[in-house]
């Protein structure tokens, strides 16, 4: 952009600093307090890892963490497979109606609460037993859409002539997919999978509605929600720090694999 006066530049830097402070101070305070020795969740009284240790001994949290892992891994695997195929199908065809676009886009924009009650009504109408499997069925819906959109973004700059080149050199359609198409789009597929994994790990409302009653299918966000409702504790701070660290690591990885995933 045009040359700026020093005063303008200072203002712009000030804006940036304030915005980043706004974005990161709440998180930083939370993380700092997770290492707090005292029992008060908000008053600093020295460094300690004891809340992390107490998490490790909390059976409810551990079982919720395991459930979350199962849901996230299975739904990510399914969504990655189907979402990638969907993306390739859509991009090959190119001439599709806006109806198809809307269908693929919808899971990303529908309010969580609406999808949650829709699935609850659907499952109870069919007399489905609710549990981890229904959460997985539900999570695949939005994970599909996100994987598809990440892979499609990559395919927009994909040189389709290499697919033809492979056929020209004698490869069958399946060999071409395995040896040419997939390796080239793999970073985007993995990035999409990591994104889906994070979304699934963090998802609360849909899981809450489709999990059914009982501890057996409680996920980590559900556990966190009930803990927060109960009041703030240093234990939540520690748990929150761990969950955030996991999501942020997955997302950073995803970003490195696929420049600009987050920027979609």
């Amino acid at each position: 952009m045009a040359e700026r006066s020093p005063a303008t530049r200072r203002t712009l830097w000030l804006v940036l600093s304030l915005v980043f402070a706004f974005l990161y101070i709440p998180i930083a305070v939370l993380v700092a307090l997770s290492f707090n020795q005292g029992g008060l969740p908000t008053v600093w009284s020295g460094f300690s890892l004891k809340w992390y240790a107490s998490l490790a001994g909390n059976a409810a949290i551990l079982s919720a963490a395991l459930n979350t892992l199962i849901v996230a891994l299975v739904s990510t695997a399914i969504a990655t497979l189907f979402g990638t195929l969907l993306a390739i199908g859509v991009e090959i065809r190119r001439q599709y109606g806006s109806g198809l676009e809307a269908l693929i886009f919808a899971p990303m924009i529908i309010p969580d609460i609406v999808l949650a009650i829709a699935l609850l009504s659907f499952f109870s109408l069919l007399d489905f037993t609710l549990g981890l499997h229904t959460i997985i069925l539900a999570h695949v819906v939005f994970n599909l859409a996100f994987v598809c959109s990440v892979v499609r973004a990559r395919l927009k700059s994909f040189d389709w002539s290499i697919v033809e080149a492979s056929a020209d050199l004698g490869a069958s359609a399946i060999t071409t997919f395995r040896r040419v198409t997939l390796p080239v789009i793999l970073p985007a597929v993995v990035a999409g999978a990591l994104l889906a994994f994070t979304l699934s790990v963090d998802e609360f409302i849909i899981a809450f509605f489709t999990s059914g009653a009982g501890r057996a299918s409680t996920t980590l966000p559900m556990q966190i929600y009930s803990m927060i409702r109960f009041g703030i504790t240093p234990e939540i701070n520690a748990l929150a720090t761990i969950v955030m660290a996991v999501s942020i690591t997955a997302l950073t990885l995803s970003q490195r694999l696929n420049r600009g995933v987050i920027g979609q």
Binding site: D159, S161, A167
Partner: peptide, 29 residues
């Protein structure tokens, strides 16, 4: 179909496989 013809095309954009070395590209066919 193209993979069953004793005919080869050199593409306008070259269409080299970006994830393969020169040798792997040439060996592929």
């Amino acid at each position: 179909p193209p993979n069953k013809r004793p005919v080869n095309l050199m593409f306008q954009s070259y269409a080299l496989f970006p994830h393969m070395s020169v040798r792997a590209n040439v060996s592929y066919g």
